[in-house]
Simulated assay, not measured.
Amino acid sequence: MATMADVARSAGVSVATVSHVLNGTRPVLPHTRQAVLDAIDRLGYTPNTLARSLVTSRTRSIGLAVSAISNPYFTEILQGVEAGALEHGYSLLIADPHDDPEHERRVVQLLHERRVDGMIVAPSANPRELVAYLGRHDVPTVFLDRLVDTCAEGAPRYDQVCAESAEPTADLVTHLADLGHRRIALVAGLPGLSTTRERIAGYRRGLAASGLTYDEHLVVHGDSESAGAERVTAALLSLADPPTALVTANNAMTIGALRALRDRGLAVPDDIALCCFDDFAWADLFSPRLTAVAQPSKEIGTQAVRVLLERLAAPDLPTRTLRLPCVFVHRTSCGCPEGSARPEHPERPAQFEKGTIS
Rank of each mutant, 00 (worst) to 15 (best):
G355L: 13
L130Y: 03
A163G: 15
P349H: 12
M4G: 03
F352P: 04
G301A: 10
R204W: 15
S57Q: 15
N71S: 09
I255N: 13
L324N: 12
A152L: 14
S194Y: 08
H175S: 01
D138N: 11
V219A: 08
A283L: 15
T141S: 10
Y214K: 11
L176K: 00
V21P: 06
C336K: 00
T59L: 07
R205D: 12
L130I: 11
L22A: 07
T291H: 09
V219W: 07
R33H: 12
T25A: 14
R306T: 12
V305Y: 04
G206H: 06
P191Y: 15
D171V: 05
W282T: 15
H98G: 09
A201S: 13
V21K: 07
A313M: 14
Y203M: 13
R262T: 15
L64Y: 05
G339A: 10
I200S: 12
E113W: 13
N71R: 02
A125F: 08
E76D: 10
D99S: 06
P325S: 15
A39M: 09
S238R: 10
G335M: 06
G301F: 04
I357Y: 10
E113F: 13
P346I: 06
L134K: 03
H112Q: 14
A85W: 06
L312H: 06
T17A: 09
I69R: 04
R183V: 03
A304G: 03
A314L: 14
A11F: 05
V15L: 08
R311K: 06
L111W: 05
R323M: 12
P27W: 05
E82L: 09
E153W: 14
R42V: 00
A208V: 11
R60V: 13
A240V: 04
D270P: 10
L172R: 00
A51T: 01
E113P: 08
H103A: 14
A350T: 14
T169L: 07
P168T: 15
L186E: 03
A83W: 04
F277S: 00
A11P: 00
C162H: 02
R342Y: 02
S226H: 12
Q303H: 09
S210A: 07
A245K: 08
R231D: 10
P315Y: 12
I184P: 02
D41H: 14
S61C: 14
S297N: 05
L176T: 04
A314S: 14
L93M: 15
A240P: 02
A350D: 13
